[in-house]
Design a binder for these strands. Structure first.
Lengths: 157, 157
DNA sequence: GTAGATGATTATGTGATATAACTATCCGGG
DNA sequence: CCCGGATAGTTATATCACATAATCATCTAC
């Protein structure tokens, strides 16, 4: 019997193990394109929804605003997106993809989707849907679920 | 339409979002017990399988040996596990839970399992099994899936 | 008995993520 | 009209998770 059998009963543990097994590989897939997970996701939403402001992207991707700054800097310096003064608000920038950015996203997306398909090659389509639905349910429940936990315990070692 | 609809098609993205939504909450559940995710998982395998060596724990939990050292130091200083000289190998230590460690694990485990149950409260039992099976399939496929990816691309920005 | 492998450790680096504080600008009530 | 509080972006910084290289002691195989 595997020594982590007890941990494997926890959905959270399985998520963590799957996540750490996958994230490094995703970064290696994106590296030839000059992208990381975070910058790929930003490029994706900028291509899919041009004109968003940085705060909007922050909300959509759950990336803190300060961390977005450097990511957007890098994408802009690579010539894939541009910051454009927002109409009627001199504080804000609208983010737009460049032509090169759209093309580059299409290429990277192809590689990443091929990789993602391999990840789930052992699963049939209903199983993939069930997996994604389950993950989304957990993601939604996550922040709420800590209410009312037992708060007693001991001091940290 | 949500701006990350394209990303949501990627299993990897959904795993990352669920993971980051859950991990902070897990840590907050464990904090009153003086544990973090990593130290909880080590305590779990030591309680479930006493006598393992540090290298064994490293393999089971996919934690690098160097990182294990401090985790085990903390658990030992808290009086929950002990390093015992391995029979016939003076380099190695066998890890054993103390009585206090077993009791403490039982308490923390209760809180964590209650939390984990809330995470999946929107899912019925078959959906939970499907979720865990899917995660395990992805975890297994993860390291292999990067073979043969398109390696062309551009320089990093 | 020596060479190469292995267990544990130390030191160190990197990436992801969170927080506090700052500047510039917007907006609404007096 | 202008003043105070909110908001957009930025800077600096801290923390945590995770990985690598190098070291020391000991084991094992030849």
């Amino acid at each position: 019997m595997s020594s982590d059998a007890d941990l494997r009963r926890l959905v959270g543990y399985n998520i963590q193990r799957a996540s750490s097994a996958v994230m490094g590989a995703v970064n290696r897939v994106l590296k030839p394109f000059g992208l990381r997970r975070a910058s790929y996701s930003v490029l994706s939403v900028v291509v899919e929804t041009p004109g968003l402001r940085q705060a909007d992207v922050s909300d959509v991707l759950a990336i803190e605003r300060p961390n977005l700054v450097q990511i957007i800097d890098a994408l802009e310096q690579a010539g894939w997106i541009s910051r454009r003064q927002a109409e009627g608000d001199r504080r804000a920038y609208e983010l737009h993809p460049t032509l090169a950015g759209r093309a580059h996203y299409t290429e990277a997306r192809g590689a990443l989707m091929a990789f993602d398909a391999k990840l789930t090659s052992a699963l049939d389509q209903p199983a993939i849907w069930a997996l994604i639905d389950g993950l989304n349910a957990v993601e939604e429940a996550g922040p709420e679920a800590e209410e009312g936990e037992a708060r007693r315990g001991v001091q940290a070692p």
